[in-house]
Every structure is written in C-alpha cells, then in structure tokens.
C-alpha cells in the first residue's frame, strides 16, 4: 500500500503544490471574511479531484494492468484511492477546525458533516470512475463536485438548526458505511475488468 501512495505522490506532486497554494489563499480569505463556505467547498474539490487525478494517471500509464500482474488484489488497488480520499478529507477537516479556532469557536458538528460529505461524494463517484474511466466518468465527477459545493454551502446555512448530535452522528455513520460499500463495489468492478 505504501508503494501505491508513493507512486500517487510522485505523480501528483505538482498538482498538490498548486492545490496547496490555492488552499492557502482560500484559508486567508476565509479567516479575513470570517466565512468558511468557499474554503469548505474547495476542500471537497481537492479531496475528490486528487483521487480522480491519480486514477487518470494510472489509466494513462496502464498502471492497473501492471499492479494486477504483480499480484496486487483489486481490493488493494481500490482501497488505496479510498484511503487517499480519507486522508485528504481528514486534512481538510483539521484545516477547517484550525480556521474556526482562529476566527471563533470550533464547530465539531459542522466539521463532522463536512467530513461526511467528502466521503459521500467519493463513495458515489469512484465506482463510476473505476467502471467507465476518468474520461468517460468526468460528467459524473463534475456533477458530484457541484453537488458537493452546494451541500457544503447548505450545511453552513443549516448547521445552526441541527441541534441533535444523534442525527449528525447517524448521517456520518451512514456516509462511512456507504464509503466502505463503495470501496467493495469498486474492487468488484476492477476485478471483473479485463485490462
């Protein structure tokens, strides 16, 4: 798994640098304006688009064929993309918490909802990308990212009205379950695919 992460890091280092610079600008704007909506939307964008970009590199290089030929299971190949998403989602979560601490108080409920949205979008998009490829699945990806940004903004506006931690916990748990189910589905799709 570490080898797969390293391969993605080398493939994506320039993109990650660019995203880092952009995120710094979004964070600065969020802290100054005390409005985290767009920063959250960009966080979701980075999380999903990093994983999908890594898939695009893998497709271009025919990497899945080599990885399968070297004995890596479809589950290991798919799981790496999901773990990458989980890691970037956690990073966005942490960044959001730091920004909230700077401008006021950390809203753990909002942050948990934001994290869950990251997972939900990934859960919907990744099986489509594994099935049809990044090029053909681009439409699904764009639709999912627009939905993610809309959901982030919506979450910001209704976060004050969500008063039941149980509801949020259930939503987050459902997203986690969907994420795990999606990973299993992606592994099945990869396993059935002729490379």
């Amino acid at each position: 798994m570490k080898g797969l992460f390293l391969k993605d890091f080398y493939n994506l280092r320039q993109l990650l640098l660019w995203y880092g610079v952009m995120m710094a600008l979004f964070v600065a704007a969020a802290v100054i304006s005390k409005n985290l909506s767009f920063m959250m939307g960009f966080g979701v964008f980075i999380t999903i688009s990093t994983a999908s970009s890594s898939m695009a590199y893998d497709e271009k290089d025919n990497w899945y064929k080599f990885a399968r030929a070297c004995g890596l299971s479809p589950l290991a190949i798919a799981a790496e993309k999901y773990l990458l998403t989980l890691a970037l989602g956690a990073l966005s979560f942490a960044l959001l918490a730091v920004c909230q601490a700077v401008i006021g108080e950390i809203d753990w409920m909002l942050n948990a909802g934001f994290f869950a949205i990251n997972l939900m979008i990934g859960a919907v998009v990744f099986p489509v990308l594994f099935k049809f490829g990044v090029e053909k699945g681009r439409l699904a990806l764009i639709a999912a990212l627009v939905a993610a940004i809309a959901l982030s903004v919506l979450l910001m506006s209704v976060s004050g009205s969500i008063t039941t931690p149980l509801a949020l916990a259930l939503f987050t748990a459902a997203c986690l379950a969907l994420f795990a189910l999606s990973m299993w589905l992606s592994a099945k799709i990869l396993g059935k695919k002729d490379m």
Binding site: K2, G3, L4, L6, K7, Y10, N11, Y57, K60, D61, N62, W63, K65, F66, A69, C70, L72
Partner: peptide
C-alpha cells in the same frame, strides 16, 4: 510497459521497494 511515467529511476526504485 505500464510503469508510472512521472517518476525517475530513483523514485521508481522507492515505489517498487515498497511494493
């Protein structure tokens, strides 16, 4: 070939060492 194209040989060695 199907190897990563954005890496040099040192980096490819690091990837493979962990695979």
């Amino acid at each position: 070939v199907s190897l990563p194209s954005a890496v040099n040989l040192r980096e490819l060695n690091t990837v493979m060492k962990n695979m």
